[in-house]
Computed example of a mutant assay.
Amino acid sequence: MARLLWLAQVLRDAGLTVHEVPGWKTRGGSLGEIRGITCHATAGGLNSTDDGEISTLLHGSSTAPPPIAQLYLSRTGHWHVVASGKCNHNRVGWAGPNRGFGNSVLLGIEAQHSNKDSERWTERQYTSYVRGVAALARRLDIPVSRIAGHKEHQPSPHRAGRHRRRPTPLST
């Protein structure tokens, strides 16, 4: 599976609002057959903007080179397609249903959220997350059991040299 050029259409067909980030069709490295989906949260500030979060996904961070994820889900429930190829959203997991798998065979979604207990997932964003992930899993023909939050893929206590877990709506 070289490129996931169908991402935007699958999400639109699920009745979701989708924005295509310029250059997404050629962004990212070579992918293998997608074996699972990892659901992340951006850990951005409570006042983070879509533009700021997408910029991080496009340009990387101190812990991940770009692009960071194929998909971004804003607090509004809108999806943004960032890349069609391999992204750097997580390392090879040591637990959970996608244990032993990493970036080259896992689809990554980053949802705008601070990861603070004080921020609740809105119904609008949560519903969009569930609908979008369900549509992606159907298109990829992967079972629900292969959908995991970052917490399940790389749980604490973390291995030496690994980053701490990041909660997602699937892990709370």
Rank of each mutant, 00 (worst) to 15 (best):
R120H: 10
E119P: 04
H158I: 12
I147H: 01
P155V: 02
R146Y: 02
S145M: 05
V92R: 08
V92N: 04
T172K: 06
V105C: 11
K25W: 10
R27V: 07
T76S: 10
R99G: 09
E33V: 13
V21K: 13
L16Q: 14
P97H: 00
H163C: 10
D117I: 09
V133Y: 05
R162L: 12
A135I: 01
R3H: 08
Q70A: 05
W94D: 08
R139Q: 14
S145W: 08
L11G: 01
V130S: 08
R3Y: 11
L136V: 13
F101N: 09
A134G: 11
V144Y: 02
P97D: 10
R27C: 06
R138T: 15
N115I: 14
R131F: 01
G102K: 00
L7A: 00
L170K: 11
P65K: 14
L16E: 13
C39R: 10
T26S: 12
S48N: 13
R139H: 12
A41P: 03
G32E: 12
D141Y: 15
T172D: 06
Q154N: 14
E33M: 07
A160G: 09
G132M: 07
I109V: 14
P65V: 13
L107V: 01
N98Y: 00
G85M: 03
A111Y: 06
K151I: 04
L73N: 03
A134P: 07
L73P: 14
F101K: 08
P157Y: 01
R75M: 07
V21T: 15
P143R: 09
I37Q: 02
D13H: 09
T38I: 15
I37F: 07
G44P: 04
R159P: 10
P143Q: 00
V144L: 05
T56E: 15
Q70F: 02
E20T: 15
H40G: 00
T127Y: 05
R35K: 07
L106K: 00
Q112I: 15
G108C: 07
R75P: 12
A41H: 04
C87G: 11
L16C: 14
K151S: 06
S62K: 15
Y129G: 05
R99L: 10
R124H: 09
G161L: 03
M1H: 14
R166K: 14
R12T: 11
L46H: 03
G23N: 14
E123Y: 13
R75H: 04
H150E: 05
D50S: 07
E123N: 08
S30C: 04
T17G: 04
R166S: 12
R162T: 09
A160E: 12
R120S: 12
